[in-house]
């Protein structure tokens, strides 16, 4: 089976993923790790915005992305997808949310379905990097204020220089005509 066919079978994850998974040492071994990640993915689908340590947030993000991508691609009539949803979402009413809300919301998206923000460390505290993981298009107020640099002084100067250049070219064109 060549790669083109694999791509047809599994939808591509739209975020960068580490080549190696994080092990997250756990007394219950790999199973414990998955239980932990399932908890996070379920929280994310339920609350749409969660604050986590970076490592856990980044790892869970890939699984959530894959789950949503499968739900969009195959819909709720596809047995393997339903099995996946059943596994990753520990609260069963969220399975309905996945297919009826999220799959519909992200049907025409061309980018990733989730967003990872850096969160501040609170002093004094543990010096682990904190992040906020959220589903795009959630109903909460935006976390990052968009600060446009359009009116910063160098951009004004460059824009005016550009306008000048266009005017000059137009004049030259008129003259040659």
């Amino acid at each position: 089976m060549n790669q083109a066919e694999i791509r047809k079978l599994i939808p591509a994850v739209r975020v960068a993923i580490n080549a190696k998974h994080r092990k997250f040492s756990n007394p219950k071994g790999p199973e414990g790790r998955l239980t932990m990640l399932r908890k996070t993915v379920t929280e994310l689908v339920k609350l749409e915005r969660v604050e986590l340590n970076y490592q856990r947030g980044d790892e869970a993000r890939g699984y959530a992305e894959r789950l949503i991508a499968m739900a969009i691609k195959h819909g709720d009539r596809h047995i393997p997808t339903m099995e996946m949803a059943n596994y990753w979402l520990t609260e069963k009413q969220l399975v309905h949310k996945l297919f009826k809300v999220l799959a519909v919301r992200y049907k025409d998206h061309t980018e990733s379905y989730t967003k990872l923000h850096k969160a501040p460390n609170i002093y004094p505290g543990f010096y682990r990097e904190r992040v906020v993981l959220e589903l795009k298009g959630n109903p909460f107020p935006p976390l990052e204020k968009k600060n446009s640099s359009h009116n910063w002084i160098h951009n004004i100067l460059l824009e005016e220089a550009h306008q000048d250049y266009i005017r000059k070219k137009l004049k030259e064109g008129e003259r040659s005509n």
């Binding site: 968009k146 640099s149 910063w152 002084i153």
Partner: peptide
């Protein structure tokens, strides 16, 4: 300051 979204007066 200079890096606000509209720093008209600062500029």
């Amino acid at each position: 300051h200079f890096r606000q979204s509209d720093p008209y007066y600062a500029n």
